[in-house]
Design a protein around this nucleic acid. Structure first.
Lengths: 168, 168
DNA sequence: CCAATGTCAGGTTGACTGATATGC
DNA sequence: CGCATATCAGTCTACCTGACATTG
């Protein structure tokens, strides 16, 4: 007589089970797949909150970075470095933000090679409102307690450090 | 006399500090940003391992899904459901895989609306070799212990469950 | 001369919207 | 008829490579 196993309700769990029967690194596979999926969930949630402002997550991050910077402006290259995006992506994102009037390109005082990107008053205003909307979504992470959120951040920090994201 | 604070080596940590001075949800912001970054790291690592096979992560996941399926084939819609991708993305991905000879479209026996996607022998072969390469990368997660990998998977499961990823 | 900075052209990916043909 | 299934056309975002002009 056959014993019917309970169907795995969690598809990642099920994939893990099959993976372990054939290959190594099932735990890594499950964690990696989980992270990929978590990213989709967060991205969808935040993008939805940002849609009324005609902002993507990437552009929103740019605005927040500039708002947090000491003089409300940063060189293009510095932005790419901090946001960890490709130089041409910086150009693209700044193009759009500038088209929306949220930032302005300005020459650098001493180095005429570099272009400074400065957040405008309107940009700050939009950023404030957008942030309210984003905070209201809870980033799709309401299921985690404050302690669990910090656990998550710490675990990812290990990954980031090992991949050379930052010094120390 | 001014006390010079140590510079935050971790940019997410620094963003968190500034965020907390103005808004709520700093812990969520830090966790969300961390996950977004972790996804980039994993994606880059896996894509690099898959490049010699002319596969992206998305297409590779499709191959693995088919290889794991009972008959080596699934309806298009089912694939989209399991991979959590848009129907047109399924069409796109299957187009490419079919062009590479890794899968084949077949009619469904009983329902002539549905198209079955079947992995070919060549597709299985490529999938096996690609998996070796992917496992070798450790998914960019070598920094985490087996226990930490499972912690990560469990934390994300909470997020996924709360967003309706699966039943139970 | 070499390095750094930003831009541009051109190509790829995957996601999306809306419309459509087909079949249940 | 409504609904499900897959496709197609067209658009969008962000990424990448390679080339380039300008400047330090």
């Amino acid at each position: 007589m056959s014993v019917t196993r309970p169907l795995a309700a969690d598809p990642i769990d099920e994939a893990r089970r099959q993976w372990d029967q054939r290959w190594l690194g099932g735990a890594s596979m499950a964690a990696a797949t989980s992270i990929m999926r978590a990213q989709q969930i967060i991205q969808a949630r935040v993008d939805e909150a940002l849609r009324p402002f005609d902002l993507t997550f990437a552009r929103y991050e740019g605005l927040v970075l500039l708002a947090f910077s000491r003089h409300g402006s940063l060189p293009m290259g510095k932005m790419g470095e901090r946001l960890m995006i490709h130089p041409t992506s910086v150009t693209n994102i700044v193009d759009r933000l500038e088209g929306q009037g949220h930032v302005r390109r300005r020459p650098h005082d001493h180095d005429r090679r570099t272009t400074l990107v400065e957040i405008t008053a309107a940009g700050r205003q939009v950023m404030e409102e957008a942030t309210e909307a984003v905070v209201a979504t809870g980033f799709g992470l309401e299921a985690l307690s404050p302690r669990q959120l910090d656990d998550m951040t710490k675990l990812v920090r290990k990954i980031r450090r090992s991949s050379g994201d930052f010094d120390s």
